[in-house]
Design a protein around this nucleic acid. Structure first.
Lengths: 229, 229
DNA sequence: ATTGAAATTATTCAATTGTATAACAGTGTG
DNA sequence: CACACTGTTATACAATTGAATAATTTCAAT
Protein backbone atom coordinates (compact mmCIF):
# COMPACT_ATOMS: atom_id res chain seq x y z
CA UNK A 1 0.00 0.00 0.00
CA UNK A 2 1.82 3.05 -1.24
CA UNK A 3 1.16 6.66 -0.65
CA UNK A 4 -0.45 8.87 -3.20
CA UNK A 5 2.08 10.47 -5.49
CA UNK A 6 1.90 14.21 -5.73
CA UNK A 7 3.44 17.35 -7.13
CA UNK A 8 4.67 20.28 -5.16
CA UNK A 9 2.93 23.27 -6.63
CA UNK A 10 3.62 26.92 -6.12
CA UNK A 11 1.69 28.73 -3.44
CA UNK A 12 -0.38 30.71 -5.92
CA UNK A 13 -1.38 27.76 -8.06
CA UNK A 14 -2.32 25.56 -5.15
CA UNK A 15 -4.28 28.26 -3.41
CA UNK A 16 -6.20 29.12 -6.55
CA UNK A 17 -6.91 25.48 -7.23
CA UNK A 18 -8.29 25.08 -3.73
CA UNK A 19 -10.41 28.21 -4.01
CA UNK A 20 -11.85 27.11 -7.33
CA UNK A 21 -12.67 23.71 -5.92
CA UNK A 22 -14.34 25.49 -3.03
CA UNK A 23 -16.49 27.54 -5.38
CA UNK A 24 -17.43 24.47 -7.36
CA UNK A 25 -18.50 22.61 -4.23
CA UNK A 26 -20.38 25.54 -2.74
CA UNK A 27 -22.24 26.06 -6.00
CA UNK A 28 -23.03 22.38 -6.23
CA UNK A 29 -23.89 21.48 -2.66
CA UNK A 30 -24.35 24.78 -0.87
CA UNK A 31 -22.27 26.02 2.01
CA UNK A 32 -23.55 23.24 4.24
CA UNK A 33 -22.61 20.54 1.77
CA UNK A 34 -19.20 21.92 0.91
CA UNK A 35 -17.17 19.92 3.42
CA UNK A 36 -13.41 20.05 3.58
CA UNK A 37 -13.28 16.50 2.34
CA UNK A 38 -15.43 17.16 -0.71
CA UNK A 39 -13.50 20.30 -1.55
CA UNK A 40 -10.09 18.71 -1.27
CA UNK A 41 -11.25 15.70 -3.25
CA UNK A 42 -12.48 18.07 -5.96
CA UNK A 43 -9.07 19.73 -5.94
CA UNK A 44 -7.33 16.37 -6.02
CA UNK A 45 -5.50 16.76 -2.72
CA UNK A 46 -5.97 15.60 0.83
CA UNK A 47 -7.59 17.44 3.69
CA UNK A 48 -4.40 18.52 5.39
CA UNK A 49 -3.69 21.14 2.75
CA UNK A 50 -6.58 23.29 3.88
CA UNK A 51 -4.89 23.87 7.17
CA UNK A 52 -1.59 24.38 5.43
CA UNK A 53 -2.69 27.02 2.92
CA UNK A 54 -5.51 28.63 4.84
CA UNK A 55 -5.79 28.59 8.58
CA UNK A 56 -9.19 26.95 8.54
CA UNK A 57 -12.10 26.02 6.32
CA UNK A 58 -13.82 29.34 7.03
CA UNK A 59 -10.72 31.22 5.98
CA UNK A 60 -10.56 29.29 2.76
CA UNK A 61 -14.19 30.02 1.99
CA UNK A 62 -13.76 33.72 2.65
CA UNK A 63 -10.81 33.77 0.29
CA UNK A 64 -12.81 31.92 -2.32
CA UNK A 65 -15.60 34.49 -2.03
CA UNK A 66 -13.18 37.37 -2.52
CA UNK A 67 -11.71 35.52 -5.48
CA UNK A 68 -15.18 35.18 -7.03
CA UNK A 69 -16.09 38.82 -6.51
CA UNK A 70 -12.80 39.91 -7.99
CA UNK A 71 -13.36 37.81 -11.07
CA UNK A 72 -16.89 39.09 -11.52
CA UNK A 73 -16.05 42.77 -11.41
CA UNK A 74 -12.93 42.23 -13.48
CA UNK A 75 -14.87 40.48 -16.22
CA UNK A 76 -17.54 43.16 -16.24
CA UNK A 77 -15.07 46.03 -16.37
CA UNK A 78 -13.05 44.29 -19.02
CA UNK A 79 -15.99 43.88 -21.36
CA UNK A 80 -16.55 47.62 -21.21
CA UNK A 81 -12.90 48.50 -21.57
CA UNK A 82 -12.47 46.22 -24.56
CA UNK A 83 -15.22 48.00 -26.47
CA UNK A 84 -13.89 50.87 -28.49
CA UNK A 85 -16.22 53.62 -29.50
CA UNK A 86 -18.60 56.12 -28.03
CA UNK A 87 -19.35 56.21 -24.33
CA UNK A 88 -22.79 54.91 -25.28
CA UNK A 89 -21.23 51.88 -26.92
CA UNK A 90 -19.09 51.18 -23.89
CA UNK A 91 -22.01 51.43 -21.51
CA UNK A 92 -24.21 49.30 -23.75
CA UNK A 93 -21.49 46.70 -23.97
CA UNK A 94 -21.17 46.63 -20.21
CA UNK A 95 -24.89 46.19 -19.76
CA UNK A 96 -25.20 43.49 -22.39
CA UNK A 97 -22.20 41.64 -20.96
CA UNK A 98 -24.05 41.32 -17.69
CA UNK A 99 -27.03 39.75 -19.43
CA UNK A 100 -25.09 37.16 -21.41
CA UNK A 101 -22.65 34.34 -20.79
CA UNK A 102 -20.26 34.00 -19.20
CA UNK A 103 -21.30 36.72 -16.78
CA UNK A 104 -24.91 35.65 -16.57
CA UNK A 105 -24.41 32.13 -15.44
CA UNK A 106 -26.72 30.14 -13.27
CA UNK A 107 -23.96 28.63 -11.20
CA UNK A 108 -22.29 31.98 -10.62
CA UNK A 109 -25.54 33.49 -9.45
CA UNK A 110 -26.13 30.57 -7.11
CA UNK A 111 -22.70 31.08 -5.64
CA UNK A 112 -23.15 34.79 -5.32
CA UNK A 113 -26.50 34.44 -3.59
CA UNK A 114 -25.17 31.83 -1.19
CA UNK A 115 -22.37 34.13 -0.11
CA UNK A 116 -24.63 37.17 0.08
CA UNK A 117 -26.64 35.23 2.61
CA UNK A 118 -23.63 35.24 4.93
CA UNK A 119 -22.74 38.90 4.56
CA UNK A 120 -24.94 39.99 7.40
CA UNK A 121 -23.45 37.73 10.01
CA UNK A 122 -19.83 37.42 8.98
CA UNK A 123 -17.81 40.65 9.07
CA UNK A 124 -15.26 39.16 6.70
CA UNK A 125 -17.93 38.50 4.10
CA UNK A 126 -19.39 41.94 4.68
CA UNK A 127 -16.10 43.62 3.90
CA UNK A 128 -15.62 41.62 0.72
CA UNK A 129 -19.13 42.44 -0.38
CA UNK A 130 -18.77 46.14 0.35
CA UNK A 131 -15.53 46.40 -1.58
CA UNK A 132 -17.01 44.59 -4.56
CA UNK A 133 -20.13 46.72 -4.52
CA UNK A 134 -18.14 49.92 -4.29
CA UNK A 135 -16.00 48.86 -7.20
CA UNK A 136 -19.02 48.02 -9.32
CA UNK A 137 -20.64 51.38 -8.56
CA UNK A 138 -17.45 53.19 -9.47
CA UNK A 139 -17.21 51.44 -12.80
CA UNK A 140 -20.83 52.31 -13.51
CA UNK A 141 -20.34 55.96 -12.61
CA UNK A 142 -17.36 56.23 -14.89
CA UNK A 143 -19.36 54.71 -17.72
CA UNK A 144 -22.44 56.83 -17.10
CA UNK A 145 -20.81 60.22 -16.69
CA UNK A 146 -19.67 60.87 -20.27
CA UNK A 147 -22.96 59.59 -21.63
CA UNK A 148 -24.90 62.08 -19.53
CA UNK A 149 -22.60 64.94 -20.48
CA UNK A 150 -22.76 64.12 -24.15
CA UNK A 151 -26.53 64.23 -24.19
CA UNK A 152 -26.70 67.42 -22.20
CA UNK A 153 -28.55 65.69 -19.38
CA UNK A 154 -28.71 67.42 -16.02
CA UNK A 155 -25.46 66.42 -14.40
CA UNK A 156 -23.92 66.42 -10.96
CA UNK A 157 -21.93 64.00 -8.87
CA UNK A 158 -25.04 63.12 -6.91
CA UNK A 159 -27.15 62.58 -10.01
CA UNK A 160 -24.48 60.40 -11.50
CA UNK A 161 -24.12 58.37 -8.36
CA UNK A 162 -27.86 57.89 -8.00
CA UNK A 163 -28.05 56.72 -11.56
CA UNK A 164 -25.30 54.26 -10.80
CA UNK A 165 -27.16 52.95 -7.78
CA UNK A 166 -30.38 52.50 -9.72
CA UNK A 167 -28.65 50.98 -12.72
CA UNK A 168 -26.72 48.62 -10.48
CA UNK A 169 -30.00 47.56 -8.89
CA UNK A 170 -31.47 46.91 -12.31
CA UNK A 171 -28.43 44.88 -13.35
CA UNK A 172 -28.34 42.85 -10.15
CA UNK A 173 -32.02 42.05 -10.21
CA UNK A 174 -32.19 41.10 -13.87
CA UNK A 175 -28.93 39.23 -13.61
CA UNK A 176 -30.20 37.12 -10.77
CA UNK A 177 -33.73 36.40 -11.89
CA UNK A 178 -32.57 35.99 -15.45
CA UNK A 179 -29.86 33.51 -14.61
CA UNK A 180 -32.17 31.45 -12.41
CA UNK A 181 -34.24 31.12 -15.55
CA UNK A 182 -37.55 30.27 -13.99
CA UNK A 183 -38.91 29.65 -17.46
CA UNK A 184 -41.35 32.56 -17.34
CA UNK A 185 -39.63 34.22 -20.28
CA UNK A 186 -36.74 33.61 -22.64
CA UNK A 187 -33.37 34.69 -21.32
CA UNK A 188 -32.37 36.16 -24.64
CA UNK A 189 -34.77 39.07 -24.33
CA UNK A 190 -32.65 40.48 -21.52
CA UNK A 191 -29.83 42.24 -23.41
CA UNK A 192 -32.29 44.33 -25.40
CA UNK A 193 -34.53 44.73 -22.41
CA UNK A 194 -31.79 46.13 -20.22
CA UNK A 195 -30.43 48.55 -22.81
CA UNK A 196 -33.91 49.92 -23.41
CA UNK A 197 -34.54 50.19 -19.69
CA UNK A 198 -31.20 51.92 -19.16
CA UNK A 199 -31.97 54.47 -21.86
CA UNK A 200 -35.11 55.46 -20.05
CA UNK A 201 -33.48 55.33 -16.63
CA UNK A 202 -30.84 57.80 -17.79
CA UNK A 203 -33.33 59.90 -19.80
CA UNK A 204 -31.50 59.26 -23.05
CA UNK A 205 -33.27 59.47 -26.40
CA UNK A 206 -34.70 56.14 -27.49
CA UNK A 207 -32.10 54.11 -29.36
CA UNK A 208 -29.14 55.85 -27.81
CA UNK A 209 -27.92 52.54 -26.39
CA UNK A 210 -29.82 50.00 -28.41
CA UNK A 211 -28.94 51.06 -31.94
CA UNK A 212 -27.51 47.89 -33.43
CA UNK A 213 -24.29 49.41 -34.73
CA UNK A 214 -23.27 52.15 -32.36
CA UNK A 215 -19.93 50.44 -31.95
CA UNK A 216 -19.26 50.81 -35.66
CA UNK A 217 -20.33 54.43 -35.80
CA UNK A 218 -18.06 55.23 -32.96
CA UNK A 219 -14.56 55.67 -34.35
CA UNK A 220 -15.28 58.43 -36.78
CA UNK A 221 -18.32 59.81 -35.03
CA UNK A 222 -17.97 63.51 -34.24
CA UNK A 223 -19.89 63.36 -30.96
CA UNK A 224 -16.83 62.22 -29.02
CA UNK A 225 -15.15 64.41 -26.47
CA UNK A 226 -13.27 66.90 -28.64
CA UNK A 227 -9.62 66.11 -28.61
CA UNK A 228 -7.64 69.07 -30.04
CA UNK A 229 -4.72 67.06 -31.39
CA UNK B 1 -34.84 13.71 36.98
CA UNK B 2 -38.17 14.63 35.52
CA UNK B 3 -39.16 15.08 31.97
CA UNK B 4 -39.73 18.43 30.38
CA UNK B 5 -43.31 19.54 30.71
CA UNK B 6 -45.00 20.46 27.46
CA UNK B 7 -48.20 21.49 25.74
CA UNK B 8 -49.89 19.67 22.97
CA UNK B 9 -50.40 22.21 20.22
CA UNK B 10 -52.48 22.04 17.09
CA UNK B 11 -50.84 20.92 13.90
CA UNK B 12 -50.91 24.39 12.35
CA UNK B 13 -49.47 26.21 15.32
CA UNK B 14 -46.67 23.73 15.86
CA UNK B 15 -45.74 23.59 12.21
CA UNK B 16 -45.65 27.37 11.92
CA UNK B 17 -43.60 27.67 15.07
CA UNK B 18 -41.09 25.19 13.70
CA UNK B 19 -40.91 26.95 10.34
CA UNK B 20 -40.36 30.31 11.99
CA UNK B 21 -37.63 28.88 14.17
CA UNK B 22 -36.10 27.43 11.03
CA UNK B 23 -36.09 30.83 9.33
CA UNK B 24 -34.57 32.45 12.39
CA UNK B 25 -31.78 29.91 12.54
CA UNK B 26 -31.06 29.97 8.81
CA UNK B 27 -30.88 33.75 8.88
CA UNK B 28 -28.64 33.67 11.92
CA UNK B 29 -26.29 30.80 11.13
CA UNK B 30 -26.83 30.04 7.47
CA UNK B 31 -28.12 26.78 6.09
CA UNK B 32 -25.02 24.95 7.29
CA UNK B 33 -25.41 26.22 10.84
CA UNK B 34 -29.12 25.63 11.11
CA UNK B 35 -29.01 22.19 12.63
CA UNK B 36 -32.07 20.32 13.74
CA UNK B 37 -30.98 20.74 17.32
CA UNK B 38 -30.59 24.49 17.09
CA UNK B 39 -33.88 24.87 15.30
CA UNK B 40 -35.83 22.78 17.75
CA UNK B 41 -34.17 24.52 20.68
CA UNK B 42 -35.19 27.86 19.14
CA UNK B 43 -38.74 26.55 18.87
CA UNK B 44 -38.62 25.25 22.43
CA UNK B 45 -39.16 21.61 21.57
CA UNK B 46 -37.03 18.53 21.15
CA UNK B 47 -35.59 17.07 17.99
CA UNK B 48 -38.13 14.32 17.57
CA UNK B 49 -40.81 16.74 16.45
CA UNK B 50 -39.09 17.43 13.15
CA UNK B 51 -39.63 13.89 12.09
CA UNK B 52 -43.16 13.99 13.41
CA UNK B 53 -44.32 17.14 11.60
CA UNK B 54 -42.09 17.02 8.56
CA UNK B 55 -40.56 13.91 7.16
CA UNK B 56 -37.05 15.24 7.42
CA UNK B 57 -34.99 18.35 8.01
CA UNK B 58 -34.88 19.11 4.29
CA UNK B 59 -38.62 18.90 4.08
CA UNK B 60 -38.96 21.31 6.98
CA UNK B 61 -36.59 23.77 5.34
CA UNK B 62 -38.43 23.64 2.04
CA UNK B 63 -41.67 24.34 3.84
CA UNK B 64 -40.06 27.22 5.69
CA UNK B 65 -38.87 28.71 2.40
CA UNK B 66 -42.34 28.52 0.89
CA UNK B 67 -43.70 30.12 4.05
CA UNK B 68 -41.24 33.00 3.72
CA UNK B 69 -41.97 33.61 0.05
CA UNK B 70 -45.67 33.57 0.75
CA UNK B 71 -45.28 36.16 3.47
CA UNK B 72 -43.10 38.40 1.29
CA UNK B 73 -45.43 38.56 -1.67
CA UNK B 74 -48.45 38.87 0.58
CA UNK B 75 -46.96 41.85 2.42
CA UNK B 76 -45.99 43.54 -0.83
CA UNK B 77 -49.36 43.07 -2.45
CA UNK B 78 -51.12 44.16 0.70
CA UNK B 79 -49.28 47.47 0.87
CA UNK B 80 -50.47 48.28 -2.63
CA UNK B 81 -54.01 47.09 -2.02
CA UNK B 82 -54.31 49.11 1.14
CA UNK B 83 -53.49 52.35 -0.63
CA UNK B 84 -56.56 54.04 -1.98
CA UNK B 85 -56.23 56.50 -4.80
CA UNK B 86 -54.91 56.74 -8.30
CA UNK B 87 -53.10 53.87 -9.97
CA UNK B 88 -49.97 56.01 -9.64
CA UNK B 89 -50.45 56.20 -5.90
CA UNK B 90 -50.86 52.45 -5.64
CA UNK B 91 -47.78 51.75 -7.69
CA UNK B 92 -45.75 54.31 -5.78
CA UNK B 93 -46.89 52.81 -2.51
CA UNK B 94 -45.88 49.36 -3.67
CA UNK B 95 -42.45 50.57 -4.70
CA UNK B 96 -41.84 52.50 -1.51
CA UNK B 97 -43.00 49.58 0.59
CA UNK B 98 -40.24 47.49 -0.92
CA UNK B 99 -37.66 50.09 0.09
CA UNK B 100 -38.75 50.47 3.70
CA UNK B 101 -39.28 48.32 6.74
CA UNK B 102 -40.56 45.78 7.29
CA UNK B 103 -40.14 44.63 3.72
CA UNK B 104 -36.59 45.88 3.35
CA UNK B 105 -35.05 44.03 6.22
CA UNK B 106 -31.50 42.82 6.40
CA UNK B 107 -32.40 39.50 7.91
CA UNK B 108 -35.10 38.84 5.35
CA UNK B 109 -32.71 39.58 2.52
CA UNK B 110 -30.12 37.27 4.05
CA UNK B 111 -32.69 34.53 4.24
CA UNK B 112 -33.89 35.12 0.73
CA UNK B 113 -30.38 35.06 -0.70
CA UNK B 114 -29.50 31.90 1.17
CA UNK B 115 -32.48 30.09 -0.28
CA UNK B 116 -31.93 31.50 -3.76
CA UNK B 117 -28.55 29.87 -3.63
CA UNK B 118 -30.24 26.47 -3.44
CA UNK B 119 -32.77 27.04 -6.22
CA UNK B 120 -30.48 25.76 -8.91
CA UNK B 121 -29.80 22.40 -7.34
CA UNK B 122 -32.99 21.60 -5.49
CA UNK B 123 -36.08 21.19 -7.66
CA UNK B 124 -38.32 21.83 -4.67
CA UNK B 125 -36.69 25.19 -4.07
CA UNK B 126 -36.86 25.96 -7.78
CA UNK B 127 -40.60 25.44 -7.85
CA UNK B 128 -41.16 27.63 -4.82
CA UNK B 129 -39.02 30.36 -6.33
CA UNK B 130 -40.74 30.22 -9.69
CA UNK B 131 -44.18 30.49 -8.15
CA UNK B 132 -43.14 33.43 -6.03
CA UNK B 133 -41.52 35.21 -8.95
CA UNK B 134 -44.52 34.67 -11.18
CA UNK B 135 -46.80 36.05 -8.48
CA UNK B 136 -44.64 39.13 -8.03
CA UNK B 137 -44.55 39.81 -11.77
CA UNK B 138 -48.31 39.48 -11.96
CA UNK B 139 -48.83 41.96 -9.17
CA UNK B 140 -46.48 44.38 -10.90
CA UNK B 141 -48.24 44.04 -14.25
CA UNK B 142 -51.58 44.73 -12.67
CA UNK B 143 -50.18 47.83 -11.01
CA UNK B 144 -48.41 49.08 -14.11
CA UNK B 145 -51.16 48.59 -16.67
CA UNK B 146 -53.59 51.31 -15.57
CA UNK B 147 -50.73 53.77 -15.10
CA UNK B 148 -49.56 53.28 -18.66
CA UNK B 149 -53.08 53.58 -20.03
CA UNK B 150 -53.81 56.71 -18.08
CA UNK B 151 -50.74 58.47 -19.42
CA UNK B 152 -51.38 57.42 -22.97
CA UNK B 153 -48.15 55.47 -23.10
CA UNK B 154 -47.68 52.90 -25.84
CA UNK B 155 -49.37 49.84 -24.47
CA UNK B 156 -49.49 46.15 -25.17
CA UNK B 157 -49.35 42.98 -23.14
CA UNK B 158 -45.71 42.52 -24.11
CA UNK B 159 -44.75 46.07 -23.24
CA UNK B 160 -46.46 45.76 -19.89
CA UNK B 161 -44.78 42.47 -19.12
CA UNK B 162 -41.35 43.78 -20.10
CA UNK B 163 -41.86 46.77 -17.87
CA UNK B 164 -42.77 44.42 -15.07
CA UNK B 165 -39.63 42.36 -15.62
CA UNK B 166 -37.42 45.44 -15.61
CA UNK B 167 -39.17 47.00 -12.65
CA UNK B 168 -38.93 43.75 -10.73
CA UNK B 169 -35.23 43.65 -11.46
CA UNK B 170 -34.85 47.17 -10.18
CA UNK B 171 -36.79 46.35 -7.04
CA UNK B 172 -34.89 43.13 -6.37
CA UNK B 173 -31.51 44.70 -6.87
CA UNK B 174 -32.15 47.80 -4.80
CA UNK B 175 -33.91 45.75 -2.16
CA UNK B 176 -30.94 43.49 -1.74
CA UNK B 177 -28.10 45.94 -1.92
CA UNK B 178 -30.06 48.44 0.11
CA UNK B 179 -30.89 46.03 2.88
CA UNK B 180 -27.31 44.80 3.11
CA UNK B 181 -26.51 48.40 3.82
CA UNK B 182 -22.88 48.42 2.91
CA UNK B 183 -22.63 51.94 4.22
CA UNK B 184 -21.87 53.44 0.83
CA UNK B 185 -25.02 55.56 0.98
CA UNK B 186 -27.92 56.18 3.34
CA UNK B 187 -30.75 53.68 3.04
CA UNK B 188 -33.36 56.39 3.28
CA UNK B 189 -32.59 57.74 -0.18
CA UNK B 190 -34.02 54.58 -1.70
CA UNK B 191 -37.78 55.27 -1.61
CA UNK B 192 -37.35 58.51 -3.55
CA UNK B 193 -34.70 56.98 -5.73
CA UNK B 194 -36.87 54.09 -6.81
CA UNK B 195 -39.96 56.17 -7.53
CA UNK B 196 -37.89 58.52 -9.68
CA UNK B 197 -36.27 55.60 -11.46
CA UNK B 198 -39.63 53.95 -12.03
CA UNK B 199 -41.05 57.13 -13.55
CA UNK B 200 -38.30 57.13 -16.11
CA UNK B 201 -38.44 53.39 -16.69
CA UNK B 202 -42.15 53.67 -17.52
CA UNK B 203 -41.73 56.93 -19.47
CA UNK B 204 -44.03 58.83 -17.16
CA UNK B 205 -43.78 62.59 -16.72
CA UNK B 206 -41.45 63.59 -13.91
CA UNK B 207 -43.27 63.68 -10.61
CA UNK B 208 -46.00 61.28 -11.69
CA UNK B 209 -45.04 58.90 -8.90
CA UNK B 210 -42.97 61.05 -6.62
CA UNK B 211 -45.38 63.91 -5.93
CA UNK B 212 -45.55 64.02 -2.15
CA UNK B 213 -49.32 63.89 -1.84
CA UNK B 214 -50.62 61.88 -4.75
CA UNK B 215 -52.45 59.71 -2.31
CA UNK B 216 -54.41 62.69 -1.05
CA UNK B 217 -55.22 64.03 -4.48
CA UNK B 218 -56.52 60.73 -5.50
CA UNK B 219 -60.08 60.41 -4.29
CA UNK B 220 -61.52 63.48 -6.03
CA UNK B 221 -58.99 63.69 -8.82
CA UNK B 222 -60.61 63.71 -12.27
CA UNK B 223 -57.86 61.69 -13.94
CA UNK B 224 -59.35 58.45 -12.67
CA UNK B 225 -60.96 55.93 -14.98
CA UNK B 226 -64.35 57.48 -15.60
CA UNK B 227 -66.94 55.67 -13.58
CA UNK B 228 -70.46 56.59 -14.80
CA UNK B 229 -72.29 56.00 -11.54
C1' DA C 1 24.55 12.41 -5.09
C1' DT C 2 23.24 14.41 -0.51
C1' DT C 3 20.87 17.01 2.19
C1' DG C 4 17.34 19.72 4.29
C1' DA C 5 13.23 22.37 4.19
C1' DA C 6 8.49 22.20 3.57
C1' DA C 7 4.66 20.59 0.77
C1' DT C 8 1.73 16.82 0.99
C1' DT C 9 -0.32 12.61 2.70
C1' DA C 10 -2.26 9.59 6.16
C1' DT C 11 -4.40 9.03 10.37
C1' DT C 12 -6.56 10.23 14.59
C1' DC C 13 -9.88 12.73 17.55
C1' DA C 14 -13.67 14.83 19.73
C1' DA C 15 -17.73 17.14 18.41
C1' DT C 16 -21.78 17.52 15.76
C1' DT C 17 -24.86 15.95 12.46
C1' DG C 18 -29.68 13.81 10.86
C1' DT C 19 -32.50 10.13 11.78
C1' DA C 20 -34.57 6.30 14.09
C1' DT C 21 -36.78 4.11 18.12
C1' DA C 22 -38.77 3.67 22.54
C1' DA C 23 -40.73 5.60 26.58
C1' DC C 24 -43.65 9.03 28.49
C1' DA C 25 -47.44 12.42 29.29
C1' DG C 26 -50.97 15.58 27.95
C1' DT C 27 -55.74 15.73 26.44
C1' DG C 28 -60.16 14.73 24.87
C1' DT C 29 -63.71 10.83 25.07
C1' DG C 30 -66.46 7.35 27.18
C1' DC D 1 -62.46 8.59 36.44
C1' DA D 2 -60.30 5.31 33.34
C1' DC D 3 -59.05 4.86 28.92
C1' DA D 4 -56.69 5.25 24.51
C1' DC D 5 -54.70 8.18 21.17
C1' DT D 6 -50.90 10.64 19.73
C1' DG D 7 -48.09 14.69 20.50
C1' DT D 8 -43.85 14.99 22.74
C1' DT D 9 -39.62 13.85 25.12
C1' DA D 10 -35.52 11.22 25.77
C1' DT D 11 -31.99 8.47 24.14
C1' DA D 12 -29.24 5.92 20.98
C1' DC D 13 -26.57 5.41 16.74
C1' DA D 14 -23.89 5.50 12.70
C1' DA D 15 -22.07 8.87 9.72
C1' DT D 16 -19.84 13.06 8.89
C1' DT D 17 -17.72 17.04 10.25
C1' DG D 18 -13.33 20.40 11.00
C1' DA D 19 -9.10 20.34 13.01
C1' DA D 20 -4.79 18.50 14.75
C1' DT D 21 -0.62 15.62 14.51
C1' DA D 22 2.72 12.61 12.74
C1' DA D 23 4.69 10.35 8.95
C1' DT D 24 6.29 10.70 4.31
C1' DT D 25 7.69 12.51 -0.15
C1' DT D 26 9.10 15.98 -3.34
C1' DC D 27 12.31 19.15 -5.04
C1' DA D 28 15.69 22.81 -5.05
C1' DA D 29 20.17 23.94 -3.42
C1' DT D 30 24.51 22.33 -2.92
Amino acid sequence: MSRKTFQRLSLDVRRRSLMEATLTCVARHGLHGASVRRITEEAGVTVGLVRHYFGSKDDMIRNAYAYLVGQLTAQASESARATEGTPEAKLASFLRANMTKPNMDEETVSLWATFIGRVRHDPGFAEIHRDGYREFLNVLEILIEPVLIQHGCPYSVTICRNHAIALNGLIDGLWMEGALNSGLYAQDILPDLITGAAERLLDLPAGALSAPDIALQSTQHPTQQSKPS
